[in-house]
């Protein structure tokens, strides 16, 4: 693949087109995003996020950025954990997702320490060394240039700050991989069509997961971006992996 092209699912598109195409997908699914997450994962995504929150080790007064925060699942929890002296920034490139997240959090009474930011993860509009923790849950695979995004995150983290990447990955068991493939390409688009009226977006979801770097590759990319103590933990047999890295102090 040349430098000017990138993946959009299994298709190869020009780099500058990917963001718009991904935006179309999420504009389309934003309204039913939470419902579809529960349906597609049978609710397990809540456990994956719970593990992420526990391992984040958030403390009062910290500044946290939840990139590709979508409908604000992680932000809601972080907002309570950092308390009134802390700050949580819910960042998403997609205005529709951000609107859904903002409405949901405001309706839950979570106001005061949450800020909303429509931003591209590759070019975070935040000062250097200003953030204690960055999380990006199920968002990195949609980013056009992942290395650029990781470098941008590394820049805004304070020394000793932590990055947590929760993302679909490669199942470690061949049998599970076969079952998962069948589910992703046969059941997922049909679920999307049935409940969200959009099969194409969920077809893209399945394809984008397959094109995302596997566990070891992403770990190497984090190392290259300047993170240290990079590690990952597989969940649900590697369907999802939680990568972590720390900015050198």
């Amino acid at each position: 693949m040349s430098e000017e092209t990138t993946h959009f699912g299994f298709k190869t598109v020009r780099s500058e087109e990917k963001a718009a195409k991904v935006a179309d997908v999420f504009h389309s699914v934003a309204a039913k995003y939470d419902l579809m997450n529960d349906l597609m994962s049978a609710g397990i995504h809540r456990l994956w996020k719970r593990v992420t929150i526990e391992l984040a080790g958030v403390r009062q007064g910290q500044t946290i950025v939840d990139i590709a925060g979508g409908t604000g699942d992680l932000t809601a929890k972080f907002s309570r954990l950092v308390g009134p002296d802390g700050t949580v920034v819910l960042a998403d490139i997609n205005a529709s997702m951000l609107n859904v997240g903002r409405d949901k959090l405001t309706d839950s009474g979570l106001i005061g320490n949450i800020h909303y930011l429509q931003a591209d993860a590759q070019y975070l509009p935040l000062p250097d060394e200003s953030v204690d923790l960055i999380t990006i849950a199920f968002g990195l695979r949609n980013v056009t240039d992942k290395s650029l995004a990781l470098a941008s995150m590394q820049r805004v983290l304070k020394p000793g700050g932590k990055l947590l990447v929760l993302e679909f990955s490669k199942p470690t068991n061949p049998l599970l991989a076969r079952v998962y493939d069948g589910y992703s390409f046969s059941v997922l688009p049909k679920l999307g069509q049935l409940f969200a009226g959009d099969a194409d977006s969920y077809q893209y979801l399945a394809e984008s997961i397959r094109m995302h770097p596997d566990q070891e590759t992403l770990k190497a990319m984090m190392n290259e971006a300047g993170f240290e103590r990079c590690d990952y933990q597989n969940m649900t047999g590697g369907i999802v992996a939680l990568h972590s890295g720390v900015k050198p102090a």
Binding site: T172, N173, L175, L176, Q215, Y232, Q233, M235, G238, A241
Partner: peptide
């Protein structure tokens, strides 16, 4: 080979 083996990178 298809049965789940202990994943060294599984959840700690």
């Amino acid at each position: 080979q298809t049965l789940p083996a202990r994943d060294p990178n599984g959840l700690k």
